[in-house]
């Protein structure tokens, strides 16, 4: 079954209508500015569990939404 996300304006919609926007979250042990930039740009956190994400509802209202998604469900 396809992932479905809730839009506060449009309702529950299939993931096809959305564009994913990861919130970069460099780990604390990276302290250098360059290291953190590289991590922010290229390293996906691949979190297991609840995760804060941004999704753009391109097929609906055309607004960014902050969504908490559990990657294990």
């Amino acid at each position: 079954m396809a992932l479905r996300l809730h839009c506060p304006h449009c309702g529950v919609r299939p993931v096809d209508e959305w564009v994913y926007g990861e919130v970069p979250d460099p780990p604390d042990h990276l302290t250098g500015a360059d290291e953190r930039d590289v991590d922010r740009g290229f390293m996906m956190s691949n979190t297991e569990g609840a995760k804060q994400e941004r999704w753009f509802h391109a097929g609906g209202c055309g607004r960014w939404q902050a969504i908490e998604r559990d990657t294990t469900i």
Partner: peptide, 21 residues
């Protein structure tokens, strides 16, 4: 459509229809 149309009237809805917004 992969989503359910609203049942109340009048109503406004947005989403994909046949894969087109």
């Amino acid at each position: 459509s992969a989503w359910e149309f609203p049942r109340h009237r009048p109503a406004v809805a947005q989403g994909h229809l046949a894969g087109i917004p």
